[in-house]
Computed example of a mutant assay.
Amino acid sequence: MFGGGGGLDPSKMQQMMKQMGIDIDELDAEEVIIRTSEEELVFTDADVQRMDAQGQQTYNIVGDPERRAAGETSDSAEEAQENEGIPQDDIELVAQRTGTSEDAAREALEATDGDLAAAVSRLE
């Protein structure tokens, strides 16, 4: 693309890109997730660059992703499953509202199939 041979000096490449109005920034990404209908690609500690050229942003991700089947649970989803599918926020809300422990709130939510109002009524 830029002429023959063994490649360009990176500083010359950056200078040429800047002249063409292309700006590249390194991002300090901790995790990048790409979801498709069939799978998730999870990149941790990937090298991510954002290139801005004529108002269009393009992202370049370099790393080795972990592949997960679509719908496979993440850590936070696993926590919700451990709570019998009851979200932690609901447990905390019922416990705070009724002044009971989270365990008691969880039991009330499980007994009422996750119905917040019924769980609060049950504990009051």
Rank of each mutant, 00 (worst) to 15 (best):
M1K: 07
F2R: 05
G3I: 03
G3N: 03
G4L: 13
G5M: 05
G5F: 04
G6M: 11
G6F: 06
G7M: 11
D9T: 12
S11K: 11
M13N: 08
M13F: 12
M16N: 05
K18H: 13
Q19L: 12
I22F: 08
D23Y: 11
D23R: 12
I24N: 05
I24R: 07
D25G: 06
D25K: 15
L27M: 13
A29N: 01
E31A: 06
E31F: 03
I34Q: 03
I34F: 03
I34H: 03
R35V: 00
T36H: 01
T36G: 06
S37G: 13
E38Y: 05
E39I: 02
E40G: 05
L41Q: 11
V42G: 00
F43I: 03
F43P: 07
F43R: 00
T44H: 02
T44P: 03
A46Y: 04
D47N: 10
V48H: 04
Q49L: 15
Q49A: 13
R50V: 15
R50P: 06
D52V: 15
A53H: 04
Q56E: 13
Q56V: 14
Q57C: 04
Q57S: 12
Q57G: 07
Q57N: 09
Q57F: 05
I61V: 15
V62Q: 08
G63L: 06
G63H: 06
P65A: 05
R68V: 00
R68G: 04
A69S: 09
A70S: 14
G71I: 00
E72D: 09
T73F: 14
T73P: 08
D75K: 10
S76V: 14
A77N: 04
A77C: 00
A77L: 01
E78R: 15
E79P: 01
E79M: 06
E79S: 05
E79W: 02
Q81T: 10
Q81D: 15
N83T: 09
G85M: 11
G85N: 14
I86S: 11
I86A: 10
P87F: 05
D90W: 07
L93M: 12
V94I: 09
V94T: 11
R97D: 04
R97L: 01
T100E: 15
E102F: 07
E102R: 14
A105C: 09
R106T: 07
E107T: 07
L109H: 03
E110K: 10
E110V: 09
A111S: 14
A111H: 04
A111E: 09
D113S: 08
G114F: 09
G114A: 06
D115E: 07
D115L: 03
A117E: 08
A117K: 04
A117W: 01
A117P: 00
A117D: 07
V120D: 00
V120G: 00
V120K: 00
S121L: 14
R122S: 10
R122K: 12
L123M: 06
L123I: 04
E124Y: 05
